[in-house]
Design a protein around this nucleic acid. Structure first.
Ligand SMILES: [Zn+2]
Ligand SMILES: [Zn+2]
Ligand SMILES: [Zn+2]
Ligand SMILES: [Zn+2]
Lengths: 136, 136
DNA sequence: GCCTATATTGAGACATATTCTCACTTGGAG
DNA sequence: CTCCAAGTGAGAATATGTCTCAATATAGGC
């Protein structure tokens, strides 16, 4: 059984077919998805899933810190699993996105958490520039 | 004269009253503002500023790297001055923002630029969590 | 200062993203 | 099984951002 499903059940949420479809979509996605993509993929699993259910499920998953939004050039955030953390290199000209895993934010995160008494759950690291094709 | 105004003039943009109002709002703001706030405050300086002018001016300022978006819990990005500390520790609950300067992204940036053949101009590093007050 | 080419403007239509409402359905505790 | 609070989808409502276009204002040449 999916780990997302387990988390929701443990937190007292009912497991319904539409909700389960959305969970499956997000859990099986390596990268990031826009809510509209999530809706389409969820409907392929369980026909008729409503838009509102996607957003409601995303709210729960955000609250449980299982997914987090990422902001690329598109309109509105996309979502990705917190577990599969990765970062982006974004071309400001054509919008191309390169993903990378290497990240040395861990030390800084611990330092900041201590200094400012925050509980830090996630971070966002994005680089902006021009890709090879757009460099003219 | 405001530094934003100077930058725009130097870059060949005309200085109009509505634009000047938006510049003043952003330049005098220590924290971050949502476009709708910017519109209201700009209208207090110069009545009748249009929404489009706010977005157009934000685009210019982003391009000149004078303001940048910040993503908190709200719908859509807010904007803040690039000058000064350029990274954030954001409380997902109350929206409090702590700025910090320490940043070790430089090495990573050089590595990524070489590997993916990007010219990297800027980056965004933000940590999300709960502040002391909201940790309950 | 005056003139002119052209950048900039606001209104409002449009497009898209997200939230809300509400009558209906359903999971799952007991 | 029963029951009801939690969850649902449709579609209206709201929020956000983009675009068009005729009118206007700026900056630079004179
Ligand atoms: Zn590119
Ligand atoms: Zn990282
Ligand atoms: Zn807080
Ligand atoms: Zn940095």
């Amino acid at each position: 059984m999916g780990v997302f499903k387990t988390h929701l059940r443990r937190s007292g949420y009912k497991i319904t077919a539409p909700r389960e479809a959305v969970l499956a979509v997000l859990e099986n996605e390596k990268g990031h998805l826009h809510p509209s993509d999530i809706l389409l993929k969820a409907r392929a699993i369980h026909a008729g899933v409503g838009r509102a259910t996607v957003y409601r499920t995303l709210d729960i998953l955000k609250m449980l810190n299982l997914v987090r939004p990422i902001y690329i050039n598109e309109a509105g955030p996309s979502y990705m699993r917190v577990a599969g953390g990765h970062h982006h290199l974004v071309c400001s000209n054509c919008g191309k996105v390169v993903e990378f895993d290497a990240c040395n934010a861990g030390d800084l995160q611990r330092k900041l958490a201590r200094k400012h008494r925050f509980v830090i759950q996630s971070h966002l690291l994005e680089f902006y520039g021009q890709c090879e094709d757009c460099r003219n």
